[in-house]
C-alpha cells in the first residue's frame, strides 16, 4: 500500500470560486445599500425642549414670530403671504435686535413635507436657532 502523499506544491489555487464569492458580495452590497446622501433635521433633541409643543407655548410674547404654512406651501406672517427672500431678510433684521427670537411654525396638516423643510431651511439660513413646530390637535 502506498501511503506517501502526492506532491501538491505546483497545484494552482482555484480562483474561480473566489470570483464567485466576490461577485455575490458585490451584488449583495449593491442591492442592499442606499446611495442617497442622507442628512437630518432634528424633531426633538435630548438636551433641548421638544419642538412639538402645545399650541399655547410661548405664543404671544413680544420676541416670538408666528409663521403659518398653508396647504399650498404659502408662508404667512401676520396673515399676509411672504416670499422666502423677504422672510429671511425680515428674520435677520429681527435677530439683529432680538438675538433670542423665537419662531413658531404652524403648518397646515395638508402641507407637504418638502414645504415644511423649505420653511425650516429659510428660518435656519436666517440664523434662527429657537424654533418650535406647533401641531394643532383636532377638535374631538
Amino acid at each position: 500500500m502506498k501511503l506517501r502523499q502526492a506532491n501538491s506544491d505546483n497545484a494552482p489555487i482555484p480562483l474561480v470560486p473566489m470570483i464567485d464569492v466576490l461577485m455575490i458580495m458585490l451584488v449583495f452590497f449593491m442591492v442592499t445599500s442606499t446611495y442617497l446622501n442622507l442628512r437630518m433635521i432634528p424633531f426633538t433633541q435630548s438636551e433641548a425642549a421638544s419642538p412639538l409643543a402645545p399650541a399655547t407655548a410661548q405664543a404671544g410674547t413680544s420676541d416670538t414670530v408666528l409663521l403659518r404654512l398653508d396647504s399650498d406651501g404659502t408662508v404667512r406672517l401676520h396673515g399676509a403671504p411672504v416670499a422666502r427672500g423677504e422672510l429671511v431678510e425680515m428674520l435677520r433684521q429681527r435677530l439683529a435686535t432680538m438675538p433670542d427670537l423665537n419662531v413658531v411654525l404652524l403648518p397646515s396638516g395638508h402641507a407637504r413635507t418638502q414645504e415644511l423643510v423649505s420653511l425650516l431651511d429659510a428660518t435656519t439660513s436666517a440664523g434662527v436657532t429657537r424654533m418650535r413646530l406647533v401641531r394643532l390637535e383636532p377638535v374631538r
Binding site: L36, N37, L38, R39, I41, P42, F43, T44, S46, S50
Partner: peptide
Amino acid sequence: IEGLGAKDIVLVVTPE
C-alpha cells in the same frame, strides 16, 4: 413616538 419616551427623533432629508 415622543410620548413613548423617544428622546431623539430626526427627520431624514437629502441635500441633493
